[in-house]
Nucleic acid binder design. Structure first.
Lengths: 349, 349
DNA sequence: AATTAGCACTCGAACCCTCTGAGTGCCAAG
DNA sequence: CTTGGCACTCAGAGGGTTCGAGTGCTAATT
């Protein structure tokens, strides 16, 4: 129906305008900017209807309308058209990401800062979820008496390690014996299936006294458990202060307070990742009240997935005001994701 | 002279009052709170004198006085008396730091968050300066064809490593040969004295073709160079928003903007560390304009040194408004430093 | 049924004015 | 050197007014 069509066009126009101007948009301004072939009174009727539908709202009686959370949702789901990044923007991102050459960790950190600068918002990058990846190699390396390095090679070429304490008088030979047994018995096992018991039963027929052996195995266990630890990089928090949306100190405080607990943010992203339905290169978008974190009521979360090998993946995304240019931000995230995937393939060769 | 004494007492009282109330302090309030045995008029004269000396200033004609940068400096250098932390405060810090058991990196991160919570300001922790520490061991460990792990053991038991690419068809035996030669010839050398040339001349009389060898050596070199990279942890930036000193959005923006470039902060701390004159457990205090970083004009920097072994050290400290309780903050930093030193000794056995 | 012109109404933001009181500097006397 | 006294200053709070963008509603038009 034409009228219904127009109502949606009006919603779209309101979102577009509000996103750029940060001011409630009224019927008159709408006409001027968008050349609707109807009068302002008609738009007023449409707007009243949209308000009844819960898609827009008024901050106060004598102001224009702003999109509600549901309005943004509708916009994101059905109205928004994603436009490509300009050549210059792609170039800029490419250049910055290509700067860092070799290390996966650096790559992610770098990507995070590129993303936050490009979007002018807060970027979020999480290290890959390694819990499900297989342990391919495990070496115990004597560093000095009483100290050893546990080196683990996981599927997709990820390497993790940790310095652990071992009994002082353990010889390198004994260490190697333990190391070989453990590696043999754990080979190919996913990290999250390895328990202290798996480990304990992996070494048989040895002359090494139980107490020594157990200490080493326990330390090895902690190293393994620590290998799948998720790190999260948030960057660009200060950008939020520049946005008019957080010019009220209270909001800004509460937002940055929550963001400073990066564990909370990581936990939340993990959670929505688990609920995710689409394929790996879809986006998770959470708007306003949909986000169950204090202080983020006026924010949106956009995240997606990058891949390390076939099965291992991590998340990258952006946190910004819900009044953001969704289409643009999505293109930016998408391109950064693309570059990360490409780069990781190259690093892991 | 008694009058001069009193002037300094007045300065001290002004700083104390201003730090707690955040309001310009006037002659009358001063009398009431500090029981000076003279009249307000006398204090007014003293204050006029202090102003002439450049130690205090007025925000505007009809307000009280606030300390100037030089006033704070005088206070910190001569007037302030450092009081001990209460038992409860020590307990709290101890508990939090003892939580993290084994890893030096975690310890520092943890200390940083303890410090920022305890002080309610921004904490700063820098990883130890390793450039001057000696390379005790260096092992090249084959991970898979084309990929190796460089493990370096430095003096004071610090372990660093990095994954590097190597020629695909290099055998573990060849790698071991290179590794052994390099280790032998570099043993005991400080990191910053190792150059590509030192490395290149360390391997002689080998059957490994030059091109392969050089690639491995180059990669090893990058690993060594990266080992002395300084990381800096800043934490608690959001605390600054709670302080009335940064209730003007502009200030807060500029401050957080600068703090987000942690490289800049690290560079600055390094610089003042180099200019440092006193022993290792003295404090570097920079106040207001003394800090050559944009946006930190209203801040103070307090840093000190923690030790890893005899020669290696790093910095910890706090960034806060120059209107801070210097005495308290110093005690807090001092205690955290003490705990770190203690803990690191335990970790490194 | 949808659109439009017209109109009364609302209410936040901006502006201006006044008043208040803490705090000052200075002077003359103790 | 100290003190009481006094005229002066000025930021900030409070209160009132105006302005105008925007609304909803009604009645007329297509």
């Amino acid at each position: 129906m034409a009228a219904n069509d127009r109502k949606m066009q009006v919603l779209q126009a309101i979102v577009d305008d509000y996103v750029t101007t940060n001011e409630p948009v009224g019927s008159k301004a709408l006409i001027e900017r968008h050349k609707f072939p109807v009068s302002s009174a008609t738009l007023r009727n449409d707007m009243a209807e949209l308000e009844r539908m819960g898609l827009i709202e008024k901050p106060h009686t004598s102001a224009g309308r702003i999109p509600s959370d549901r309005g943004y949702r509708e916009y994101v789901d059905s109205l928004m058209k994603i436009d490509e990044l300009s050549m210059a923007e792609r170039e800029e991102i490419s250049k910055r990401i290509d700067e860092c050459v070799d290390e996966a960790g650096d790559l992610l950190k770098n990507a995070s800062s590129v993303l936050s600068e490009a979007t002018g918002m807060v970027s979020l990058v999480m290290t890959p979820r390694l819990a499900g990846s297989a342990l391919l190699q495990l070496k115990l390396l004597m560093i000095e008496p009483g100290k050893a390095l546990v080196v683990m090679v996981l599927s997709a070429g990820v390497v993790k390690d940790k310095v652990v304490r071992i009994p002082n008088f353990l010889t390198p030979e004994q260490l190697k014996e333990i190391s070989d047994s453990v590696e043999k018995s754990l080979n190919g096992k996913p990290l999250d299936e390895i328990t202290l018991i798996t480990l304990a039963t992996s070494v048989k027929e040895t002359k090494i006294p139980d107490t020594l052996l157990n200490q080493v195995l326990y330390e090895t266990y902690t190293a393994i458990k620590q290998a799948d630890r998720l790190d999260v990089f948030l960057e660009g928090e200060h950008n939020m202060l520049k946005l008019p949306d957080f010019s009220e100190l209270r909001r800004a405080q509460s937002l940055l307070g929550t963001l400073s607990h990066d564990g909370m943010v990581a936990g939340y992203v993990n959670e929505i990742e688990r609920e995710k339905t689409g394929g790996d290169d879809t986006y998770m978008i959470r708007i306003g009240q949909e986000i169950a974190l204090e202080g983020l009521e006026d924010c949106s979360f956009i995240t997606t997935t990058y891949k390390v090998g076939d099965t291992i993946s991590g998340n990258i995304g952006v946190i910004g005001p819900k009044r953001m240019d969704y289409s643009k931000v999505i293109s930016q995230i998408d391109f950064v994701r693309y570059k990360i995937n490409e780069k990781i393939k190259k690093i892991n060769g």
